[in-house]
Write a protein that binds this DNA or RNA. Sequence first.
DNA 1: ACTATAGATGAAAACCTTTATCGTTTGTAC
DNA 2: GTACAAACGATAAAGGTTTTCATCTATAGT
Lengths: 146, 146
Amino acid sequence: MRLSERKISSIMKQRGYKLTPQRRAVLKIIMGSDNHLTPEAIYQSVREEHQNIGLTTIYRTINILSELGLICEVHTAGSGRSYLVRRPLEHHHHLVCSGCNRVVDFSNCDLADIERKLSEGTGFKIEEHLLEFVGICPDCQQTAES
Amino acid sequence: MRLSERKISSIMKQRGYKLTPQRRAVLKIIMGSDNHLTPEAIYQSVREEHQNIGLTTIYRTINILSELGLICEVHTAGSGRSYLVRRPLEHHHHLVCSGCNRVVDFSNCDLADIERKLSEGTGFKIEEHLLEFVGICPDCQQTAES
DNA sequence: ACTATAGATGAAAACCTTTATCGTTTGTAC
DNA sequence: GTACAAACGATAAAGGTTTTCATCTATAGT
């Protein structure tokens, strides 16, 4: 199952959040992009159709979506934060293009072995892991060659 | 080979950076800690013996050490940045205690398989990866129980 | 040792990103 | 339609990091 805009709307309502035009607009931008987007980038995009929206609202909406687990944060993007709609609902990771910021998801992260060895070797009780790959997508490779 | 304070000093000199008392002091704090430290934490520690140092100098020194690859950034630590002296010089990753911030290094990250599959499946030319584990170290587990 | 100078320092200001405040507006349930 | 809790936008505040600039100092050459 993947998240549709309607599905997300319904989840937000269930959890007591109102569905305002502003939130719809932010959702539309995030859902319509294959790339991870910074709050500022989302702001600029939403502004094209919704000139009056405030940056504060972008942050508020992002925080709600993040709290509900509907968007994912990408960590490799320099300093600031950067978000992406959650596409596979199960545990997964990201492969990010350093050229165009496109993100590909993958689910078969086989870290159980490493995790067990580490746990045995150090006595740590392991709680979570962070795994991301960065590379250049086929399109950007071509652009670079030409 | 591990990095000694002398080794780092020599590398900085080679690259045209002067060895000032302030930089020595920052180095001493970073080298003397098993934990990852935020710029602010480094500032506070250095200040205990070097009351006049400015926060600016901390940032400048961190940036140099980072550029020279002598310290590592830890990504799991909430929002801000956090640094640690580079202990294994080879490619490695971190296991971080969420209780006390202690960091354990490990080198045998066996991601070559995943990387190859991903590369074949997506056409991406993979450049780097980010892998970190977070858990609770034995000491902090005990503290939590008692 | 002494001097010249490129580079480093500290204080303050500027920047950028994110969050809090507050009066006004609006979705939603009745 | 109305009432009310929630959300909005503008502005201010709060962090965290970088820039600026006048002063100082580590280093190389004498």
